[in-house]
């Protein structure tokens, strides 16, 4: 097992290099930038506290991505207490309906997360698999299914338009 302090340095490097990507994915899940930054902080706090438990079976980054995704999912499930989050919903100026946004939002959770990790974080299939705790083959199938669903629904939207 690696020296915990060395692991701490690796986590710090990851935090500093990939912070905007972590926030981008977390924001796509929780829907709010400030909340996403808090989620990423929480994920790293948990990663630091539990760094002794990381066994090195996959890349450290995948392990951290799992923490970020889980923290973001938990944040969505938690009742909203922080001031200011609902007022943002009140203030939101309606934007033009985008073709793809509702279709992505309607994907099952695993497909949606796989899409976020693939396109926002540009992760390879192995890392996505580690983050979502699924096999590499399942990542490939999940993304293929997501693409097929979006393609089919997009064609339907265009046909109905």
């Amino acid at each position: 097992m690696k020296d915990p302090d060395r692991r701490l340095s690796e986590l710090e490097a990851l935090y500093r290099e990939r912070f905007p990507h972590f926030v981008q994915v977390a924001c796509a899940i929780v829907g709010d930038r400030d909340r996403a930054m808090e989620v990423v902080q929480e994920a790293f706090v948990g990663a630091i506290r539990g760094r002794d438990r990381f066994r090195g079976e996959g890349p450290l980054e995948a392990w951290v991505w799992r923490a970020v995704v889980n923290a973001a999912r938990d944040a969505v499930r938690r009742p909203l207490v922080e001031a200011g989050s609902e007022p943002d919903a009140v203030y939101q100026v309606p934007e033009p309906v985008r073709r793809l946004a509702p279709l992505i939002a309607a994907l099952p959770e695993r497909q949606r997360l796989a899409v976020f990790l693939r396109y926002y974080a540009d992760l390879d299939y192995r890392t996505i698999g580690d983050a979502l705790e699924i096999e590499v083959g399942t990542v490939s199938a999940t993304l293929a299914t997501a693409h097929a669903t979006l393609r089919k629904k997009l064609r339907k939207v265009e046909a109905d338009a």
Binding site: E12, Y15, R16, F19, P20, H21, V23, Q24, V25, C27, A28, M37, V40, Q41, F44, V45, I48, R49, R98, R99, L100, A101, I104, V115, F116, Y119, Y120, H147, L150, L154
Partner: peptide, 27 residues
């Protein structure tokens, strides 16, 4: 199309930086 739409939904902000010292203190 997915890439384009996702960039609009959650733009990448390279200038974003967290506070590592705060993370350490919290942990």
């Amino acid at each position: 199309l997915i890439l384009d739409e996702l960039k609009r939904l959650s733009p990448y902000e390279p200038e974003l930086a967290g506070d590592w010292q705060t993370v350490l203190a919290r942990a």
